[in-house]
Design a protein around this nucleic acid. Structure first.
Lengths: 184, 184
DNA sequence: TCTCCATCTTTCCATTGACAAGTTCTTCAC
DNA sequence: GTGAAGAACTTGTCAATGGAAAGATGGAGA
């Protein structure tokens, strides 16, 4: 990989990383394509070649996010609780991706790469739900409950809405909360 | 209320409503202060007098959102399930407010009006959690579980992530899901 | 009636997103 | 090894935007 000269070498990756940094620092509307180009040391129009426009860049981020989520869920295995904790682990490890993924108006949700990655993650989520509920009766609601509680906890954590010690581990904080859904 | 002449009469309210419309149509970055001013029939700098800047307008929206949420929770009473359903009802009835409220980087979360409204809503939420769990042991996790599942369901519903009939009622769809947390 | 001040307008500038056209480099067929 | 084709990037441009500054308007109270 070269980093000097007319051809950057890995501009697509560099701009995506810069976007994650910039959005992480300043929020979903505190960044510009031109700023990313400056950070990457290229001209202001270079990112457009790879992503088209802002929505195109966010589309790439969303696709990458669903893929990372699927990877995390796959590593966690089919256990219901572990899948939920993996979901929280992904969201807190990749907060920018997570934030973009579930704001479909910001990107092209019907993009092929996004659809494939989202379906892969969805299949792994459904697998975790089937592990918890053997009977098919009501299994859809069980799946939605598990997805909801994991998604909700992650969202509230990232929004800073939960009053927790500053150095707390989100996954360990989530464990007793997600358990509430299983044990009673 | 007048709508012509130098003084608009109720520009603040008008611009807030226009912002809700615009964000609802085009998403959180598909709107501009100048567009809102045009919709309201005033000069492009008029909104700045009431809100300062974009973050100021979103701050007003967030404060209004937490107030509306508190109102909805108050109407629902202290029952745990009803509070959760009220949470979903608020989120789906005011999706733009809900979306802004939990993206604190977009506005000034330490604003006085926002803080007061958020604390009022938080107190009502905590009251619903106490109703479910008499013993103080683990009640914090119960509260977080309830908030998480309601927040998660609402977020996923608004993101279009749940596969449901197009005319389905979100509150009725949420009922069996939230029940999973109570009955087992 | 006079004065103060909230409300709104006009003017201005740096920044941005997006497009068009041109330049540099790489790759691959022959 | 060479030359054509295309990918990667640059330069130039334009309308739109956010935000600030300074001025105009009119309502409300003394």
């Amino acid at each position: 990989m070269r980093t000097i000269g007319y051809h950057h070498g890995d501009l697509r990756r560099t701009v995506l990383d810069a976007a994650v940094d910039a959005i992480g620092e300043s929020g979903l509307d505190g960044w510009s394509l031109r700023e990313l180009a400056r950070r990457a040391g290229v001209s202001h129009a270079a990112p457009a070649h790879h992503f088209g426009d802002k929505a195109g860049l966010l589309t790439a981020l969303a696709a990458e996010g669903f893929d990372l989520l699927a990877d995390t869920l796959k590593d966690a295995g089919p256990d219901f609780l572990e899948a939920g904790l993996a979901y929280v682990r992904f969201a807190t490890a990749h907060p920018v991706h997570f934030g973009v993924m579930f704001q479909p108006k910001l990107y092209r949700a019907d993009d092929t790469a996004v659809r494939h990655a989202r379906e892969r993650a969805g299949a792994l989520l459904a697998q975790g739900a089937r592990a918890a509920e053997a009977s098919p009766v009501g299994s859809e609601n069980t799946a939605r409950a598990g997805w909801s509680i994991a998604h909700g906890f992650a969202s509230l954590w990232l929004a800073g809405a939960l009053s927790v010690p500053p150095d707390a581990d989100p996954v360990e904080a989530a464990r007793p909360v997600l358990r509430r859904l299983l044990e009673r």
